[in-house]
Amino acid sequence: MKHSDRIILDSKQFDLTIKRLSHQLIENYNDFSNTIIIGLQPRGTFLAKRIQEELHSINKDYSIQLGALDVTFYRDDYRRQGDPLVPNETEMNFEIENKNVILVDDVLFTGRTIRSGLDAMLSFGRPSKVELMVLINRRYERHLPIQADYIGKNVHSVVSERVKVTWKETDGNDEVTLYTPDNE
């Protein structure tokens, strides 16, 4: 870690944040029988899984269905930025028609990924309500009128900075750092 790097959430705060987000959901939904949670590939799926597990550990009756959605083919930067991205797997083994959907991603920045995510999700049907949950909300740099309903943490940052979310599952520890990349 360089001097300029700043930890926004350490593993303890990270854990608390996930617990808080889960309780916020319980507050709003009571019962999750008609609700599904969809993580955006690749990194939103980790948060979605954690929330699902946390809800289940709070109350065994809260078994909420989980999906993973890839947005590659719905992106608006195809042919505009470098070569095509390699798509990830989509796992949507349920109907979303008339369901409440909680769309989950790790970082909300320009809002373009969420826009693609909404399009991708709607190609599976017409949900009755959609809410957005993000771990990190980077303010001031939105390109589209999209806001999250559940926010782990708000971050005030400049465009040149990057937010890095690491997960126990793949990176060994839960942490969010803000850093300035070299040569950009």
Partner: peptide, 15 residues
């Protein structure tokens, strides 16, 4: 991935 797409209710992507 495209095989998965063409088995969705809406089989079209905007790419």
């Amino acid at each position: 991935n495209f095989k998965q797409v063409i088995n969705r209710p809406i089989k079209k992507v905007p790419s």
